[in-house]
Design a protein around this nucleic acid. Structure first.
Lengths: 346, 346
DNA sequence: TTTGTGAGTGAACACGTTTTCATTTTGTGA
DNA sequence: TCACAAAATGAAAACGTGTTCACTCACAAA
């Protein structure tokens, strides 16, 4: 009870401001709502008193009556992954500027979600939820869709997901991976690569499936052999071991196409520091994502870039559109990928 | 209005559950509050109906009456920094298990904070706010302290902050940096290093100031020369350039002690790939933090570790203690640092 | 003067929950 | 069976805000 009293003492209410400024409580509400009609001088006086009393409208109360929480949920499995953290950082900045706060939820590495957490998350009534097809299982996602909370599924270049969501439509950001992969394959072929290994990402990952499929397709189009597919999980350590296996147990390769940059780092380090091979002379390596670390001199990685700014701009556009017009037709934004040539191919 | 109607349709309320289960709304509330007294069979029936109706208690309404939002604010300047993201990830996991959600707020790189954002953040009424002395200016922090929201200031080994907060007490996690730095200096000295450069972090950073101070102190105690201090900002690029300057414009050094691991990476790459020097033969390098990337083979960095698990455990203990007993005496947890020896010294 | 228009105003209600409090029911020992 | 404590129950009162609605007032046009 004590803390309750403290909170009341510390936190000013609209009534107190109204009393102090000799106006009605409604006027205070209007003073904080820019498009409400209120005499300018009155608004100024109220805002001044509010500042003196250190008053801030209570979001919970506001949310209760308006139905908008000004919270945007973000579902992520691993904040430490450079790719995810880039996304979180940029989106949080953009949304914050628009008056929304980021609510972070962690799911397990296998994309499963504690049902208790799901319940909990719904309780916060987020205005929007950003999920990546990468990070959440289709049936979990559907649980949300049923409640008509807008969901943004991204990095999804396959149609299978629409089926899983039982025909429900949702906004999406489509990343065309074909461009970048074509450029990468062309470069590898140009430098004489013949045996190409695909160092995969997480098995549940749709982006991984799509990248593998597109790589195979592209190689076939160019009359090259199908890739050797190595299992992976997007981590450095797994990529490291997979590369060792490829060369010690398997027959090696003259190029490695990694599903993500971090995996490419693992491959490069295994090649250079354990197998005594040279990159790019003996083996060429291409990554995917172009995370900031890719330009570090130790790696200087040639990689397929998904432009961060472009990506975030599109996402924010989608999200704000949906927040403003919840019933508008679902939108699809499309962005392209392109190869960033550095030093790991030739 | 349409979306409002939708929301009402989609989101079940306690009243609806009560009607459906033939009980009072109070009973529904009690069913979701584990320690409330309610006939077990009745609770079961209510929970069953709740599940059928897809009902979840509304956090906003609950927050309004209980005074606890179950939100924990986190103030961060850069989610992409491996150090920060580790922290966010681990804390979010731990807090989530205890029923709290993480609310993310970004401040500018210079630690200043948009006053509008500050107001906004207060509006969400977070049960607790986690700030790092690293990431927020003292006066901003005081703005919170005045409102008696518990604040956890960590990585603060200096007393100056207490003064800035005008005597207000707060919980803190004290990181004793002395141990690790002593071990590092001993190792460097053992390998014959004489001219040591300190590659600094952000100027506003208290941890940086403290590390620099402790390094100087330790060198003096061992009768070694004072370090050459290079300005920095915790980033790879700045560290890279500073190292080039040290050797091209300045007189070089035979060891570099970096304020953080990422800075150490920049130094190593500059030495190896631009200056043609060998690490550790020509120049020894020590980092600080032991982020996951430190064990990557390209760097294999000898570094001072602040144990993540220990750190997070202590933080969570502090936070939960404060949430349960807001008026309890401020606590200080202390953890130690230690050197992780890898390949960049000898 | 009358009429109409538009902005400005505040009382009352609504939002969905928890908590208090008085009441009823259940369980236990004599 | 009775008495008494303990557990279970629901009506009503909060919590702090936005919104509706009917109303006043000033001002310009008729």
């Amino acid at each position: 009870m004590n803390d309750r009293a403290d909170k009341k003492a510390a936190r000013a209410t609209a009534d107190q401001v109204a009393r102090e400024a000799n106006v009605s409580r409604v006027a205070v509400s209007r003073a904080f709502n820019p498009n409400a009609s209120l005499k300018p001088e009155k608004r100024d006086r109220i805002l001044k008193v509010a500042r003196e009393l250190n008053y801030t409208p209570d979001m919970a109360a506001r949310s209760l009556v308006t139905g908008r929480s000004h919270l945007v949920g973000m579902i992520v499995p691993d904040v430490c992954s450079p790719w995810e953290s880039q996304e979180i950082d940029a989106l949080t900045t953009a949304l914050q500027a628009e008056g929304f706060a980021t609510l972070l939820f962690k799911v397990k590495a296998d994309f499963s979600m504690d049902p208790r957490l799901l319940t909990y998350m719904r309780g916060f009534n987020p205005d929007s939820v950003i999920a990546f097809t990468e990070n959440i299982l289709p049936d979990v996602l559907c649980g949300f869709l049923d409640r008509a909370v807008p969901i943004y599924v991204i990095y999804d270049d396959v149609e299978q997901f629409a089926g899983a969501a039982s025909g429900t439509l949702y906004d999406r950001l489509l990343v065309r991976q074909k461009n970048g992969i074509e450029q990468a394959v062309a470069l590898l072929q140009g430098y004489g690569a013949r045996r190409i290994a695909y160092l995969g990402g997480k098995a549940q990952s749709l982006a991984n499936a799509e990248r593998e499929r597109t790589l195979k397709e592209t190689l076939a189009e160019r009359g090259m052999d199908a890739p050797i597919v190595l299992p992976g999980d997007y981590t450095y350590d797994t990529a490291y071991r997979a590369t060792l296996d490829l060369f010690r147990i398997g027959d090696g390769a003259d190029a490695i196409f990694a599903a993500n940059d971090v995996g490419a780092f693992g491959a490069i380090d295994a090649l250079r520091h354990e197998l005594g091979l040279s990159v790019p002379d003996d083996v060429k390596v291409v990554g995917f994502d172009d995370i900031p670390q890719a330009h570090w001199k130790s790696y200087n990685l040639t990689t397929v870039r998904i432009d961060l700014e472009e990506r975030v701009r599109a996402l924010v556009r989608l999200i704000l559109m949906r927040l403003r017009a919840p019933d508008a037709q679902p939108l699809t934004e499309t962005i392209n990928t392109r190869l960033i040539v550095r030093g790991t191919v030739g």
